[in-house]
Design a protein around this nucleic acid. Structure first.
Lengths: 219, 219
DNA sequence: TACAAATGTTACCATGTGGTAAAATTACAC
DNA sequence: GTGTAATTTTACCACATGGTAACATTTGTA
């Protein structure tokens, strides 16, 4: 955008302090995700975020003019990450079983690497998705519908049991995200202070086994 | 307890105003569950609960001395309801398939009839279970362990695939509760304003089919 | 060096909210 | 009816928190 203006009016202006800005914004967003995940929107004070980001509340408000704006930015970045992994057709593999397995493993991996993002997302949905509803409507639903159609074509081709694809995806979503969202409960159940890579591998293995076999897909 | 004191000192004292008290407490608890579910602990003001319960904040504080006490009461009653349905051995049926099916259908039914309870519960767990951790430790975990042992015995008897029972329960928990906790997302996905009995039946049917078949249980 | 934009700090405020204290009212048991 | 405990109302308050305004400082560029 800046380059388009070379020789014209505003040359090189916007890039002035952008290094500091980018670093600070990234730090703030990262910290915000953590704290929003742990305390929810209402339970989070912008001062606590600023503190852990190493600056004053007022200075943070210079980068993000309000708590709501900051929260929306956090939500948006999480949603983008999520939607990326939700396109069934984009999964590697030629046969349905492989593609679905990669979908499941990808979602579990996301829960492992971004547990806090998942929790912020979950909090938002549980509370009725007041900020995210429109985004879900316009971005998630079309992707889901495409995925559902793909599964329906597999069913039509006799490649798997005639199940309701929507419920299939609801189950995959919930059971993959539960390892992030409900990690506290799972840790208590497994008597561990922390879930490790092996736990997530066990979850992936079990889920892919059960889902693929359960809907009649050959592996 | 009152009866134990007949003829002694405090006869019939505690029952004086108990009718009003019981009615009001029940009303408050019911309203509180709804509002905590929608806005979380921090997002809920005790004034909003009092208002919808038809009394002043101060009057409500007469029945529940603090927000925390009220929240804990709501949590406790939900947990009791949950734990009741979580004992695999208590399910009707003689064979593993029937018992597991009843477990799944019971949990879905709970999500249908008590969506708000489920949401309060979910909010609490996602935020690290600050109030519920001890209860989960002492009540949920033993029940789960017993259930896991039962499944292990089924595996040992060659009645089903040698899967990890813990993951099986995590998947059942998450995928049954998702129809309550993430109802907003599911409604958007299904393009419906409200989930009806048919939706829950569809969910139960799919889940039981996939789980039972997926772990190698004959139906 | 000078200047203008970007960044950071100080001071402050309005509001919502959980909770307390005490007085007023109601209603049951006798 | 009357006294006593249960209930309700009135009047407050302390505090956390989101946000604003103005001033100060830094820094890249001409």
């Amino acid at each position: 955008m800046t380059q388009d203006l070379i020789g014209k009016v505003e040359v090189e202006r916007p890039r002035r302090r952008s290094r500091v800005r980018e670093a600070h914004e990234a730090k703030i967003l990262s910290v915000a995700e953590d704290i929003f995940a742990q305390f929810g929107y209402n339970g989070t004070s912008i001062e606590s975020i600023a503190e852990r980001a190493g600056m004053s509340k007022q200075n943070m408000l210079y980068y993000f003019p309000s708590k709501e704006v900051l929260y929306l930015r956090v939500l948006a970045s999480i949603l983008d990450l999520w939607l990326e992994k939700m396109v069934l057709l984009d999964q590697d593999g030629d046969d349905p079983a492989t593609m679905l397995e990669n979908y499941i493993r990808g979602k579990i991996e996301l829960s492992r690497t971004h547990p806090n993002g998942s929790k912020v997302f979950a909090n938002e949905i549980i509370n009725g998705a007041p900020y995210l509803k429109n985004h879900l409507q316009s971005q998630l639903v079309p992707i889901l519908d495409a995925d559902v159609n793909l599964v329906r074509s597999w069913i039509a081709d006799g490649k798997m049991d005639p199940i309701d694809p929507y419920h299939l995806f609801f189950v995959i979503w919930s059971s993959t995200q539960t390892y992030a969202d409900f990690s506290t409960q799972i840790q208590l159940s497994l008597k561990k202070d922390q879930l490790d890579v092996e736990d997530f591998k066990g979850a992936s293995d079990f889920l892919t086994h059960m889902v693929l076999k359960g809907i009649g897909l050959k592996t």
